[in-house]
Each structure stands twice: as structure tokens, then as C-alpha cells.
Design a protein around this nucleic acid. Structure first.
Lengths: 196, 196
DNA sequence: CCATTTATTGTCATTTTTGACAAATAATGA
DNA sequence: TCATTATTTGTCAAAAATGACAATAAATGG
């Protein structure tokens, strides 16, 4: 009997616009006016759907972590069908259509506020840890002989190269940097084969 | 005959306080009030020494790039006395007394504004490239047989691990992450020895 | 002591950003 | 049609941040 609610859809649209602004202007630079313009809505709607500023930041934090974790789960699915380290690396560094740098840029922007919001910081750290665990598990399957310490080190190295690539995107680095970071990840996987 | 100028010293102090605030609150969150409080001066002094907001950001950009480049030059000096890959890695990942995470955090915060200020972005990219070149040169000396492409890839991998470490610092990651990233860098250097 | 230059502080107006609420519009079921 | 609920917009006040300028204090050379 009431009017049907668009809350979920509109909230998602606004969060996406928020994400864009944070990636572009930083967390404090993402003003409500900019978000509203990006989302093509009037400013009071932001409050209607997401609440005041603190609640908006909290909502963004949840959104970033949720989609990051979802991406990790998708990656796990894709990784399960992977049989070679090369395929794993290409999944991260070549198949770049799916990956949207805004997510990691916002992740980093939120990271800066972690000292003031320990709960948020813990969730951010955990989301990255899930990604590392997914990488480590896959690497273990591909190289069962490698020691746990080596597997973790390789996963950390690949992860850092992957994260660095997104964090550099605003600088428009020369294209060979992507190739070089991919190559670094590939070299790390070779270390596992040597151990086997 | 005039009163002696403290401009250089005061400017440096204020820039250091600015750096602290940007690392903590982001570029847009580093308000003049916070900077003044951090520097223990009155707000109008910021304007007196560094100018208006845009000029302050430009000054910070120069400061970050200059000190980053200075750190790179110091590193080159230290690297010249290094004879093993292990020593190189420990210089970056263990001898952490010298390194102050604020610098790279501010570097990343400024990076986000690069699309709007291409000149700043170019300078930021160049400062990172200098660091990469320094790493590559040292690696070439330690492993003359390695191909140029491999040297660059290893340098990129080490650099990304190093940068990641600082960017995670607000999250207070578990200490073994540092060890794992160091190990990843170490494994990359092993790839050079294999090639030789 | 005097003149000159700089450091430092005080203060105000303007702009930007946010918070909050009221009113209007639209859609659905009864 | 009517009542109900949700969406959307309009508007105002408060707070935060910046820009700009005047005025005072301090130090140096002559």
C-alpha cells in the first residue's frame, strides 16, 4: 500500500558517486555538493538516504569493504579454475576490465582515518587479509612443496604490486610500469617453482 | 639593518606540521587551524610564510618531492657501499629508523590531485622514477648478467613492497607483514642471481 | 636613539559546508 | 477517490574554513 521504496537502489547510486568523489578528491574533499552533483541528485537526498556526514563515511566504509570482499570472493572462484602461476598473474594484471581503481583509492583514503576509528581500521585490514589468504591458498595449491612462509611472502609481494598499480593510476604512469609490476609478480611465482 | 629573517626555518617548521596533518587527515582535511595548532603558531603566520591555500599546497608538493629526492640521493650513497642484495633489502626494510611514513602518505595524498594539476603529477611520478632508477642501478651492479627488463621488474617489485609498507602504517598491521614484504623483496633479488 | 625590515598577533568579511526541517510531488492499495 | 507512505525539492540557520588587512612587537644597522 505504500509507495515502493527505491532506498536500496538510490543508496547504491549515491554510494557509487561518493566513491568516485573520494577517489578523485580524497575523503575530506568529497563534499556533499560534489557527491550530489556526481550522483545528479539534490543535496538533501544524501541525508535522506545515508544520514549525516559521519553516517555517510561509515556507509562508505562498509560499502568499500563489502565490495572489496565480494571482489575477493569472485577472485577465489576464478582462481579455482587456474592451473598455472601465469594464469593467476594475468588474472590480476591483464584482465583489468573488471577492476576499478576507485575502490583501492577509497580504501587508502579511509585507511588514513584508521587511527581515529580503530573499528574501521580493523575491518579494512581484515579485508586486505582476506585477499592475501585467497592468494596464498591458490599459490599453495599450485606449489604444494613451498613452505608456508614463502607462500605468504609471495602473496604479499603480488598483492603489493597489485595495489601499487591502482594507487598510481591518477599519475597516468607509462604503460610499461604495468608490465614491469606484472613481471615482478611473475618472478615471485617462479620462486615457488624453484622450491618445489 | 633589517631584522634577520627566519623565513627558511619557520617555513620548514610549518611545512613539517603541514606534512603531519596531511598524513593524518588527508590533503583536504589538513585545515589551516589544524596546521597552525600542530606547528604551535597562529593561523595568519601560515599565510605570511607560505601564502594562500593553493600556494601552500604547491609548497607542500615541492617539499615532499624535494625531501623524497633527497632521501633517494642518500639512499644512492648508502647503496654504493652495499655488496649484497641482502644488505640492500635490509637497508629498505629493517633500517627503518630513518624512514618516516608521513612522506609517502603525503605523496599519495598529493597523487590524488594529479588529474587536476598535471605538472604536480609529473613531478611526483618523476620522483618515484628516480627512486626506481637508483634501485635499478644498484641491482645492475650486483647482478651485471641480468637483463635490463628483469632488473626493472625486480626494482618495481621491491619499490611497491616498500611503498605498501608505509601506506599500511595507519592500520598498524601485524609485525610479520613487514617481515613478509621484506622476504618478498629478498626473493625478487634471488631471481637476479638465478639469471647470472 | 632612529629608521627599516621582519615577526607576530588580532580581527573582520566572505565563502564554503553542513545540519535540519518543512513542503510538495508521486505512487500504491484499499 | 482517498489515505498512506516514500521520494524529491526548497529553504534557512549554524558552523567551519579561508582571505585579507591592520596593528603591535622585536631586532638590526646606522
Amino acid at each position: 500500500m505504500p509507495r515502493p521504496s527505491l532506498k536500496d537502489q538510490r543508496s547504491a547510486e549515491i554510494l557509487d558517486a561518493y566513491l568516485t568523489c573520494v577517489a578523485q578528491f580524497g575523503l575530506e574533499g568529497a563534499t556533499q555538493d560534489r557527491i550530489a552533483a556526481q550522483a545528479q541528485v539534490k543535496r538533501p537526498l544524501l541525508r535522506h538516504y545515508l544520514g549525516n556526514r559521519d553516517q555517510m563515511v561509515a556507509a562508505l566504509n562498509d560499502h568499500v569493504i563489502n565490495t572489496f570482499n565480494a571482489k575477493t570472493r569472485d577472485l577465489v572462484q576464478a582462481l579455482d579454475t587456474v592451473e598455472t602461476p601465469l594464469a593467476l598473474v594475468d588474472l590480476l594484471f591483464v584482465d583489468t576490465k573488471e577492476h576499478d581503481p576507485r575502490l583501492l583509492l577509497a580504501w587508502q583514503a579511509l585507511t588514513a582515518t584508521a587511527p581515529e576509528h580503530p573499528d574501521r581500521g580493523a575491518a579494512l585490514l581484515d579485508s586486505l587479509d582476506q585477499f592475501l589468504i585467497a592468494l596464498t591458498d591458490t599459490l599453495r595449491r599450485l606449489a604444494p612443496e613451498a613452505t608456508p612462509a614463502t607462500l605468504r611472502a609471495v602473496a604479499q609481494g603480488i598483492s603489493s604490486a597489485f595495489v601499487t598499480l591502482d594507487s598510481l593510476s591518477p599519475l597516468a604512469p607509462p604503460p610499461n610500469w604495468r608490465a614491469e609490476l606484472r613481471q615482478a609478480a611473475l618472478l615471485l611465482t617462479r620462486c615457488l617453482e624453484d622450491a618445489a
